[in-house]
Simulated scan of single mutants.
Amino acid sequence: MKLSFLDPLTKEPGPWASVYLDTSRDVDDPDKAIELRWRHQRDALRARGADPATVSALESVIGADRDLPGRHGQALFATDGHVVLVGELPEPPVRDAAWFGRLPNALPLAVQHAPDIPYVAIALTRDGGFLDTGRPDTGQSDTGELTAEEEREQGPADDVLIAYEAGRWPTSTVTPGRPARLRVPAEEWQHAARNLAHEIADLADRHHAERIVLRRDTGEAWLSGVLVNRLPRHLQDCTSVVEEEPDAALDGDTGAALVGEQVAAVLDGGLSMADRRHVDAFYAQRARHRARSEGIRAVVTALQRGQAQAVLLAPPVRLPENLFTATDPDQIALSAPELKAFGASGVREEPAEAVLLHAALRTGAELIVLPPDETPLTDGVGVLLRYRDVADVTVL
């Protein structure tokens, strides 16, 4: 996963206030609950030396995500009296937290962005019901594809309601798009589906979608089959069809992502295609050079040398409480003497997760959060190396 969404955190020198707060709306009097949570973190920031202007700037945006339903959280970063970045968390933090220091602590936010899979969601339903032909289920629930004869036999009735949007899993659960919506007379569905397939293919191409998640009413193989049959073959191959009981009030009408639960069921625990390629390359690298591939020392060494293509996390991650950093992004180490031996000045001790994420961001490394079923790593961390010349390979 690329970390470019955190670029604003590299533009200013700090010091930084970083706050993670549960701003869920699924409790009684959520505004009061959020105010109490923020009060504790505000006091913590003041105790750590945060200036009043920065604290006040944060207070102005705490809980500003009140339009989001259900459970979620906020990650907020401010410096020098102004808020630089507000990130929405698909899940509330395990515990509210606040830091004030030289670096922003953005790792918990980055982890909640992973695996960052681009997708297109489609919802199909009837306004008026399904015309029962008396035919049994054809077993097409996996892909929804039907033959031309089956398309003709499944008779149309009433209108077809369609909604579709692009998103990125899992952040779309808290930053939903605005779905396009169509109503088509069912007798025109076969013709309309051809044009719709072109629009969906264009949307998928523009957003580099890797998966299509299509929700249809139970028993409506005809509806989904007509559309899936008209998609380009590469999109048919990455389409998952999910059946549910008819529901005309499609997701997306209440501020939620379109067919969000179905998207979660399909994509949760997966990796983006780019991340999977990196992980496969990492396993090949680790088979040859295990000591240079996993563990906190291996990761720190690669970041020191600017050789980290991607940092891998395999929860539970076991980092030291602090790491040491200096002026330049690659000046990080496990101890202060190690940095001073490199001639670094202004050495400071900072939270380890803040140092690692900042060094990865500033040196162009990516971040990969491994699914639970992947191979465990020493300290819960690993690094895919970036080789700049043949000599780099030979020293490993």
Rank of each mutant, 00 (worst) to 15 (best):
I296V: 15
I200D: 10
A287Q: 13
L377C: 06
V355S: 00
Q190H: 13
E366L: 02
V226C: 08
I117T: 11
A314G: 04
A360G: 06
A264H: 14
V241P: 11
D159I: 08
G87I: 01
V94Y: 00
P8C: 09
E12M: 07
Q112F: 06
H72A: 12
E244M: 08
A110P: 10
V266H: 07
A78H: 00
P232K: 05
G144S: 11
V94R: 12
Y20V: 11
R348P: 01
W222L: 04
V383E: 06
D247V: 07
V300N: 07
R168L: 05
D392G: 15
V369F: 00
L303W: 10
H289T: 11
V381Q: 01
E244C: 04
P115M: 11
T143I: 00
D137S: 14
Q140G: 03
V393I: 14
G269A: 07
Q41F: 01
T301V: 05
L223H: 03
L377F: 02
S18D: 11
R288C: 11
S335H: 13
P118Q: 10
I368G: 05
P337E: 03
A359K: 08
D31T: 03
E350C: 06
D275G: 04
E153M: 11
P156Q: 08
P372A: 14
F342V: 06
P176H: 02
A287S: 15
L223F: 01
R181P: 03
V160Q: 14
G155V: 12
A308L: 10
A365W: 10
G87R: 13
L124V: 09
G343M: 04
H40S: 14
V213H: 06
P93Y: 00
K2P: 15
V213W: 07
G295L: 06
F77T: 11
S56W: 02
Q140D: 10
P246T: 12
I34N: 01
R230S: 08
A284V: 12
V241Q: 00
G81S: 10
A57K: 02
T143K: 07
A64G: 15
P156M: 06
A186M: 06
D31W: 03
E353S: 15
G155Q: 15
L36Q: 15
P351S: 07
L124P: 10
E261D: 15
K2Y: 06
G128H: 12
S18V: 02
L214H: 04
V61R: 13
A148W: 05
Y164P: 10
D275C: 09
A192V: 08
V84H: 12
